[in-house]
Every structure is written in structure tokens, then in C-alpha cells.
């Protein structure tokens, strides 16, 4: 089967699928918000190029991730249909495609925007493809915490593309997504039966148990609250962002409380976990959306 399929050239759609387009929508959204919320201005063509480079870099890292994990993906129901495990693409093609995308994204960013943004982009790609995928994901149940770092780079890069320097604000945007990721993912991990254990990836609920996972969710939700409001406290944003961030984060924390202090029964409907997961997505979109709105409203002098 696999050999026969390989005699045909890979369909271009499979290369597109290799970039994880659904993850990329979030990358583009947060990157764009970082770019739009940053003080100063950037020419629309350059702004578009910066976002394109962030997206290309994320796509390249995703391709490298699937090159490395193709045999793990083959062993899990959710991922067995991906281009490599299903035999529609050669492993080396995915590796080369990932390298080309990564190198091109960093090169274009450096030439078109500046090399500081390009270096941070390069770090984010190496972080996801090497530090996370190859090194730590198969070794520690804190893998989601570490993986969250990869997802936290886009708004920071978008911001730096405009300002040209690293200040506290882009670091805070990084920290917000970093601390948001564990409760977001572990809420999902509690109600979705995954087969990570089967392929030897140590996910927190399996390794440390449900109770520990629930407690860690609340720890991150508590830490997220002051971090999300910090851009307002340091004067980086106005009250529109600050008050919204506080309200959103308190709501997030209130939804994390029942998740943290209960125990799932057999045939549990897992309602609090599902609610927390659904709200976590709304939370991130709303938080970054209002960050841009705050900047536009105060920046344009509407208030």
C-alpha cells in the first residue's frame, strides 16, 4: 500500500495540510494582534510580510514536527490520517519542505523587516521543532507547558516587527499565552480520551494523575490573572484592555475552580472541563482583540 502510493507525486494539498492550517489561524490572529497593538506604525506591505513570515515559520515548524513524529502519529487515531503516516508523502519530503519554509521565513523577515524579528522567529522555530518536539515532549509530562512557549512567540514577533526592540510589553504577551496554554490543553486532556500513552508520550493526566492535573490547572489560572492585567498596570495599555482583561481572567479562574476541586466519576459528562476549554478559546481571542481595540481607541484619540 505504502510503496504503491509513493510512486505517485504528493498532492500539493498534502503539503498544505502539513503546515497545520488550523493551528496557523491562531498563529496569524495572535501575531496580527501583536503587530496592530504595538506602538508606532508599519507599512501595510511590510506588516503583511511580517505576518506571512510568522505563518511560514509556524508552517515549517509544523512540517518538521510531523517529519520527526511520523511513527508516533501512525499509532494514534487522531493523527493516523496525516500525510506521512497515511503514506501520501515521503518522510524526507516533509523534512525538506519544513527546512525550506523555515529558512525562507527567517530570510524574508530579515531582509524585509529587520534581523531582530528574524532572529526571534528563528528561535521560535528551533524551539518548537527541536527543543519541544525532539527533546522534551517525549521526556517530561510538563511537555504542554514547554509547548506553550512555542505558541507564545507570534504576538511577540508581530510586536517586535513594528517597534524594532524587545520591551516588557511583548514579553508580557509571550507570558500570557505561555500561562494560558496548560489550563487550556489539560482541560481538553481531561475529557478527551487520547492515545498518547500508547505511543509513549507522557501526558500529565496519565503520568501524574487526574488530581494533580486539576490542581496544576488552577495554579496556572491564578498566575494568569495578574499577568493578563499587567500590560495595564505597567501603563502599556489603557483601562479598556485592563478592565476587560481582569473580567475575562476572573471568569476564567471561576470556571477553573470547579475543574480543580472535583473528581470525575465513571461515565462523567465532564461539563466543567468542557466549559473551561470552550471558554479558554474565547478568552484568548477576546483578550488579544481588546488589546488591539484599546490601542486603536486610545491611539486615535477617540477617548
Amino acid at each position: 500500500m505504502k510503496v504503491l502510493a509513493q510512486t505517485l507525486p504528493t498532492d500539493w494539498r498534502d503539503f498544505f495540510a502539513l503546515t497545520k492550517p488550523r493551528v496557523m489561524t491562531l498563529v496569524i490572529f495572535t501575531g496580527l494582534c501583536g503587530l496592530l497593538a504595538a506602538p508606532g506604525s508599519i507599512h501595510p506591505v511590510l506588516g503583511f510580510t511580517a505576518i506571512l513570515c510568522i505563518a511560514l515559520g509556524a508552517g515549517g515548524a509544523a512540517a518538521l514536527n510531523q517529519w520527526w513524529e511520523s511513527d508516533l502519529d501512525a499509532g494514534m487515531k487522531r493523527t493516523a490520517r496525516r500525510p506521512i503516516p497515511s503514506g501520501r508523502m515521503a518522510r524526507t519530503d516533509a523534512r525538506d519542505f519544513g527546512i525550506v519554509l523555515s529558512v525562507a521565513s527567517v530570510g524574508i523577515m530579515g531582509v524585509a523587516i529587520h534581523w531582530l524579528a528574524a532572529i526571534i522567529l528563528a528561535i521560535s522555530i528551533v524551539y518548537y521543532a527541536v527543543v519541544y518536539t525532539i527533546w522534551l515532549k517525549p521526556r517530561t509530562p510538563q511537555n504542554i507547558v514547554i509547548g506553550g512557549g512555542a505558541g507564545a512567540f507570534p504576538p511577540m514577533i508581530g510586536w517586535i516587527a513594528v517597534t524594532g526592540d524587545i520591551t516588557l510589553m511583548p514579553v508580557l504577551l509571550f507570558a500570557i499565552i505561555f500561562f494560558w496554554t496548560p489550563p487550556h490543553f489539560w482541560a481538553l486532556a481531561l475529557f478527551v480520551q487520547s492515545d498518547y500513552a500508547k505511543v509513549g508520550i507522557p501526558m500529565m493526566p496519565v503520568v501524574r494523575g487526574e488530581k494533580s492535573t486539576r490542581l496544576q490547572i488552577i495554579v496556572y489560572a491564578v498566575l494568569l490573572l495578574p499577568l493578563a492585567a499587567a500590560p495595564w498596570f505597567i501603563g502599556g495599555t489603557g483601562a479598556i484592555y485592563g478592565v476587560t482583561a481582569l473580567v475575562l481572567s476572573i471568569a476564567f479562574l471561576l470556571m477553573a475552580v470547579p475543574v480543580a476541586f472535583r473528581k470525575s466519576a465513571p461515565d462523567d459528562t465532564m461539563k466543567p472541563e468542557k466549559r473551561l476549554f470552550a471558554f479558554s478559546i474565547i478568552y484568548l481571542f477576546a483578550l488579544f482583540g481588546v488589546l488591539v481595540a484599546d490601542r486603536v481607541i486610545y491611539g486615535q484619540g477617540y477617548l
Binding site: T7, L8, P9, T10, D11, W12
Partner: peptide
Amino acid sequence: DETELKRRRTSR
């Protein structure tokens, strides 16, 4: 297979 190969090559 031949037709499929040509189609994929063209679209690529």
C-alpha cells in the same frame, strides 16, 4: 495511475 500522476503533476 497514469491519469492521476498527470493530474497531480499539473496541479503541483
